[in-house]
Computed example of a mutant assay.
Amino acid sequence: MKILLIEDDPFIARALCAALENEAHTVLWAPSGPEGLEAVKSGSPEAVLLDLGLPGMDGIDVLKSIRAMPSPLCDLPVIVVTAREALESRLEGLDAGADDYVLKPFHTSELLARLRAVMRRKGPIAGEVLRSGRLALNTVTHECTVGGSSVTLSKREYALLAALLVRPGAILSRRALEDKLYAPGDEPEGNAVEYLIHALRRKIGSGFIENIRGLGWRIRKESA
Results as ranks from 00 to 15, higher is better:
residue 1 M to S: 13
residue 1 M to N: 08
residue 4 L to P: 10
residue 4 L to G: 10
residue 4 L to F: 00
residue 5 L to P: 15
residue 5 L to I: 08
residue 6 I to L: 11
residue 6 I to N: 09
residue 6 I to R: 15
residue 7 E to H: 01
residue 7 E to Y: 10
residue 8 D to K: 07
residue 10 P to Q: 02
residue 11 F to P: 01
residue 12 I to A: 13
residue 12 I to R: 09
residue 12 I to H: 04
residue 12 I to Y: 08
residue 13 A to W: 15
residue 15 A to H: 04
residue 16 L to A: 11
residue 18 A to P: 01
residue 20 L to D: 06
residue 21 E to H: 02
residue 22 N to Q: 12
residue 25 H to R: 14
residue 27 V to S: 06
residue 29 W to S: 02
residue 29 W to H: 15
residue 29 W to G: 13
residue 30 A to K: 07
residue 30 A to S: 14
residue 31 P to Y: 07
residue 31 P to V: 10
residue 31 P to W: 00
residue 33 G to M: 05
residue 34 P to V: 03
residue 34 P to E: 09
residue 35 E to W: 00
residue 35 E to H: 07
residue 39 A to G: 09
residue 39 A to S: 11
residue 40 V to L: 10
residue 41 K to G: 12
residue 41 K to F: 11
residue 41 K to N: 08
residue 42 S to W: 00
residue 42 S to H: 08
residue 45 P to M: 04
residue 45 P to C: 01
residue 45 P to F: 00
residue 46 E to A: 15
residue 47 A to V: 05
residue 48 V to H: 10
residue 49 L to A: 12
residue 50 L to T: 06
residue 50 L to W: 09
residue 53 G to M: 12
residue 54 L to Q: 00
residue 55 P to D: 03
residue 55 P to H: 03
residue 56 G to V: 07
residue 56 G to K: 06
residue 57 M to D: 02
residue 58 D to G: 14
residue 58 D to K: 01
residue 59 G to R: 12
residue 60 I to Y: 14
residue 60 I to P: 01
residue 60 I to G: 10
residue 61 D to S: 12
residue 62 V to A: 13
residue 64 K to R: 15
residue 64 K to H: 05
residue 65 S to Q: 13
residue 66 I to Q: 11
residue 67 R to L: 02
